[in-house]
Design a protein around this nucleic acid. Structure first.
Lengths: 209, 209, 209, 209
DNA sequence: CAGTAACCGAGACGGTACGTCTCGTCTTAGT
DNA sequence: ACTAAGACGAGACGTACCGTCTCGGTTACTG
């Protein structure tokens, strides 16, 4: 993820591999303690036992560093097999909410999204590292539901991809909004209500088509 | 919205009323040009033709100022009467997306949300000035749909309030995620697909209950 | 000497007068301890109990600051009245050597001269603050010698000014070279030898003219 | 001049002889373009087509490197035979001034002198490489003047050596001060005036003794 | 209608972080 | 054992904002 070293990759001392991991871990630790706006790259470097120059050699700035540090968190998400589509969705929503309850994700994620509204390269980095990377969960869930006969198989591939995007926006959007904006609890009651509306909506809308 | 003047409001020169409006307008202008992270209070003061001291006398800091400046934007939202619940929702979603397309809203909103993850007073300010204030749209929409006979009347007031919150999270969340995170277009196709799933979901979930 | 405040001299908080003196004293202290090349403006600011910004608001950089700090040292020079021109010169030469023996003068003076070879504004600052300012000693000495009848009165004012410059170059140059470059002792023997050659030269050259 | 290679000079690849010359030339070129304070060893290495490591293996640091680079410049000085002592002195003074007009000498020389005030090893290096090395000019000049009968032969060898030092301080000091500190022109007028005073002084002081 | 208290602009203040630069060292691979 | 290349920890650079403070001056209530 960090900017690669001198392209030819030959001469000179190679970059320390350990430094990358230490920097990302230090970034998350600093996010927990200080939040995004009080996080400074000098402090991250100190925590990582690394010079500031080393950090700037690998990432262009705070935003890109935080994207990479946060992106790793979402790779922990797994789609549990609970027997039904509804239960699977409830499971993944709870996991997602649990990650968003962690301070390093809370303040980091929204902040880089805010920055990305004025920086196209950053928006792409977020899309590639976080958004598109987690759409796998929607694909897996749908495939599993189709195998169980809960959903009909795909016909139109364009329509199919559009549906994945929509579902991802609805699920991720609702959870993010609940956790971070309206700041209500993501408990069993809320998750069950949300899943019920979503499943009904998918069945209803799909059936009408 | 700004911190009120000396308590009882007695002696001394009163605060300039014009300054408040000038400061909020200057804040929005600065958000458009610079985005949240490069916005400085010194610059806002200069744009507003006001001393930095004046600004700090009225707002505790950048975050609170931006919340107030952004909150005014969402008051423009209106629920159009297009004859059906689906059409009403589509209308308000498009308006919401239009506001989120404006740079002063894009970068300001997400940034203060990010900051609010570490500042409870700020979270409350956001909830009061932006979130709760716009739930009126959901209430209006439901009332109108009930008047039309598209939705059954309320029975349980607790359940009713919970449903408003859920719907608000789902609508606002999906639009925010689409606009700012996955960064896809909010066009007719997407809005129709979203509304279809939502309406079916509400009907299905409501009917099953 | 420092850059003056906002010209109009009216609005705003006035500059602290104490800060100037504290900064120049701190600069000399740092020169003593660290020498010119290891002197940092951040350290000077700390010693003076002042913020770095305050320092940069008043001086453009290290060179100008050191010139001002060092210039004050040479204002201590006095032309003693020892009865004869030769004795007066010996007195002032010994004083000059004593100043050049102090570490704040030694490393500061040569360093700014070195820098001035590439910076015309700095060269002018040195000339105005140090060189021209101390030519008073030559003028005083000559006037006193003329009063005593040791030297004839001036006739041509152009020639007179040229002679002052030459004598200053010869005296200051010899002492500086002895102290700082060839690094020999400036003791009674050396001073007497130097003065003897100089006085004879002045008499001889003057007489021939 | 550079630090010698592995003591006895046995095993392994021998040091490139060309590198030394290239480094000193690159140092002078960098002095011309950048001056002492902006000269960096990394830049010198690049100009010389040499790795930074190579440079540090041969010189302890910037100061020593610059001393060696500048010292070579003064070896160009020659004592011309113009028939009289006065004319010889004028000739060598003009040559000296011409060297001090070159930017690599101007900024390099004073800077290392400044550094030498806090570094005894450096002062010795300067004295050995530059000062003592050029005293040959004074010795040659005196010998030639004695051969012509312009000066009496030496009697006391201690006194003789002391006189050489004094004359060197007076000549070099005056020229350096004129060129670099008071920053006036070293033209025919100045040189003639200076030489006149000096010669008279030597004659007068010598005669009186 | 005089006093005075709170406001206003301007700008200097002590801090802190920025992102860049150079230092002198170290670690590669290649000669 | 040397070389070029380049990453490394360290730390100063000069700039930009922060939020506070100190000024002289301006209102508009209150006594």
């Amino acid at each position: 993820m960090p900017t690669p070293a001198a392209p030819a990759g030959r001469a000179g001392r190679p970059r320390s591999a350990a430094a990358d991991a230490a920097i990302l871990a230090a970034t998350r630790a600093a996010l927990v303690e200080l939040g995004w706006s009080k996080l400074t790259l000098g402090d991250v470097a100190t925590r990582a036992g690394v010079a500031k120059t080393t950090l700037y050699r690998r990432w262009p700035g705070k935003n890109e560093l935080v994207v990479d540090a946060v992106a790793e968190l979402f790779d922990e998400l797994r789609l549990p097999d609970r027997g039904t589509l509804a239960a699977d969705i409830e499971g993944v929503v709870l996991q997602f909410a649990a990650i968003l309850a962690r301070p390093e994700a809370r303040s980091g994620l929204m902040a880089v999204v805010a920055e990305s509204t004025r920086d196209d390269a950053l928006r792409e980095r977020i899309r590639a590292s976080i958004v598109d990377r987690q759409k796998r969960l929607v694909l897996e869930g749908r495939a599993r539901a189709q195998a169980r006969g809960e959903l009909p198989p795909e016909s139109d591939p364009v329509e199919s991809s559009r549906a994945v995007d929509l579902i991802f926006d609805m699920v991720a959007g609702a959870v993010v909004h609940r956790c971070l904006i309206s700041a209500g609890p993501v408990d069993e009651t809320w998750v069950r209500g949300f899943t019920e509306v979503l499943i009904s909506g998918l069945a209803g809308a799909g059936g009408r088509r």
